[in-house]
Simulated scan of single mutants.
Amino acid sequence: MSGYAVFLRGVNVGGITIKMAELKQALASRPFSGVKTLLASGNVVLSSGLDPAGVKKEFEACLRETFGYDAWVVVLAAGRVAELVAACPYPPDDATTHTYLTLASDPAVLTALFEAGCALDGTELTLLGPEAMAWLAPVGGTLDSPFSKISSKPKYKAATTTRNLRTMIKVRDAAALL
C-alpha cells in the first residue's frame, strides 16, 4: 500500500458542490483505505495498492458516477508532496504575496503553461518538477494576476489545479500520517 494525495480540480466553485463527507463515503467502495479529506477545496489523502495512474482512474470514475460531472484530479505520491513543499523557494506567508503551487497530471501541459507564464513581465515562476510549479501572486489580487488568467484557460484546465502553499503543507502533514 502506498500513500497518495489527490487534488480535485474545480470542486466547490462554478456550481460543482461536493460535501467532503459525501466524497469520503463515495470513495469507501473503491480500492482505497485511510481516506481523509482536508478543507473543503478538494484535497484528499489515502492509501491504495494501485499505482498513481490507477488511483487517478478510480477516483475520477467515482466522481463521475457519484456526482455526475467530468472530473479531473492530480494524484501525487505522499512523499512527492513533501518534496515539492520543500523545493518551493517562496514563503508560505508573506505580507505582500501569496505562494501557489500549480500541479499537473500532464507534464506537457505544465511545460506549456510554464513557458506562457515566463513570457509575462513581472511574473515570478519556479518549475519544481514535471508535475508542479510555484508562483507568486499579490495579496488580494490572485484572480486578477496575469498568470492566474492564463492558467484558467480551457487548454490547461483539464490537467492542472492550483493550491496555496499553506494548503500544500497541510496536505503534506496529513499524507505523512498514512
Rank of each mutant, 00 (worst) to 15 (best):
V109R: 07
T97G: 11
F67A: 01
A112Q: 06
A87V: 13
G68C: 01
F114E: 14
V75C: 09
T111W: 11
L76W: 06
H98A: 12
G68K: 00
T96C: 08
T96E: 14
L76T: 02
V109Q: 06
V73D: 04
L84S: 10
V74C: 03
A112W: 02
D106E: 07
V74P: 03
A71K: 01
A108Q: 12
P92H: 10
H98M: 12
P107F: 08
S105V: 11
L110N: 08
L76I: 03
G68Q: 05
T66C: 04
A104N: 09
S105L: 08
D70I: 01
L84V: 14
D106F: 00
S105K: 09
D93Q: 15
L103V: 10
V73P: 07
L101N: 10
T102Y: 05
L110P: 05
T99M: 12
W72V: 08
A82E: 01
A112D: 09
C88A: 11
L113Q: 00
Y69T: 05
F114D: 14
V81D: 04
L84F: 09
R80S: 13
D70H: 02
V75S: 07
A71Q: 05
L113H: 03
S105T: 14
L76K: 09
H98Q: 15
P107A: 10
A112H: 00
P91N: 06
A87W: 12
V73Y: 04
